[in-house]
């Protein structure tokens, strides 16, 4: 029996996933949710940017403002639900839950207040979005019969906006010095700053995303946000060893010998094929060198990191389960 894997983020209920655009935040969040559900708990996946990323990834119709079963657990595994949070619905729900505004609620909408609050009033939009995530994490009796989740995974805005998105408190402080919005922001902040929350960053092994990850982590540490792990996504396959890569990088490949080896396994080689393979190999070796240097930078951060491979066919529904299995081996449970 293999040694039991130690749990990487014990006691964390809310996993927030951020990262530079194009690094696969949504894919990582979805496979993280599947990995977390594997031991039997139910998991809620939330998105807040109106992109319908989960609907596309799981190949289901667009998600409404409602918790929908998106992946039923087989065997002992729990279920994964998904929720697309939009600020307008969150505000209406909030007003309904806490103020029972009735006619005044409709009037607010008519006067453009809802639109104002959700698109223009600085920070309010973020409080509404994170507030709904908070509500799902800390269900109370105002939301009767609501499902309770063992874990929540939030596909959050990109690194460049994350501190602002989560740290709404400071920004609002200047604006709303008191009142319910301020109180709401404070409770949300309390959860986000607690050990029950972890903020993960996705990156790829390229200069700019890695730099952004490093800057992001420093900023979070400075502002007291709980940094979780770094998910290194789209890692290139490791098919060429050090020796082989050195041959390619130093232009020391003997074309004839390579051609003979290829012929021996039934490839009708031509000089063009050999040249293509070598040039692809050299590009790959150069990229790997760059990846190694970036990996070293991440290692200096002293934050747990997990690597996910680049799937050559792109990530489709089944690919999520492969990635989830890799995450579980890495200690996500």
């Amino acid at each position: 029996m293999p040694a039991p894997v130690t749990q990487l983020f014990p006691g964390v209920q809310l996993h927030i996933v951020t990262g530079k655009g194009g690094t696969g935040k949504t894919t990582v969040a979805a496979s993280l949710a599947i990995a977390l559900a594997a031991d039997g708990g139910d998991v809620l996946l939330c998105e807040v940017e109106g992109r319908q990323g989960f609907a596309q990834l799981f190949d289901v119709p667009p998600l409404p403002y409602e918790e929908r079963l998106i992946a039923r657990g087989t065997g002992d595994a729990g279920d994964v639900y998904a929720l697309a949070i939009d600020a307008e619905s969150a505000l209406m729900e909030y007003l309904d839950m806490y103020y029972r505004l009735g006619r005044a609620g409709k009037a607010l909408d008519r006067f453009g207040v809802i639109e104002f609050a959700t698109t223009i009033a600085p920070g309010v939009r973020d409080v509404l979005l994170t507030g709904k995530v908070y509500e799902a994490a800390r269900r109370n009796r105002r939301n009767k019969d609501a499902r309770e989740y063992d874990a929540i995974v939030l596909d959050a805005p990109p690194t460049g906006r994350i501190a602002q998105f989560l740290n709404v408190n400071n920004e609002l402080a200047g604006l709303a010095k008191m009142g319910p919005i301020k109180a709401q922001a404070d409770t949300v902040t309390e959860l986000i700053r607690s050990p029950q929350c972890a903020i993960h960053l996705t990156t790829v092994l390229e200069e700019m995303p890695v730099q952004e990850t490093i800057d992001g982590i420093h900023e979070m540490q400075r502002t007291g946000l709980p940094v979780g792990g770094v998910f290194i996504n789209l890692v290139r396959p490791q098919d060429l060893g050090d020796n082989e890569r050195a041959l390619l990088l130093n232009d020391k490949v003997d074309n004839q010998q390579l051609s003979k080896t290829l012929d021996s396994v039934g490839i009708a080689t031509t000089p063009a094929i050999v040249a293509t393979l070598i040039s692809e190999g050299r590009d790959h070796a150069e990229r790997r060198e760059l990846e190694d240097s970036q990996r070293a930078l991440i290692a200096e951060l002293d934050v747990p990191s997990l690597e996910l491979p680049r799937l050559p066919g792109g990530v489709e529904y089944e690919g999520l389960y492969d990635l989830a299995a890799i995450l579980r081996e890495g200690g996500i449970r």
Binding site: P237, D239, L240, G241, N243, E244, L247, L248, V253, D254, Q257, L258, K260, T261, L262, V265, I267, T276, L277, I278, E280, G281, H284, R310, P312, G313, G314
Partner: peptide
Amino acid sequence: SYEKLAGGLLRLHADKMQAVTR
């Protein structure tokens, strides 16, 4: 060594062709 090299290059090429198709 050359079998490893050839194997690795073929694997990379296969991945690449798959990506190109996609």
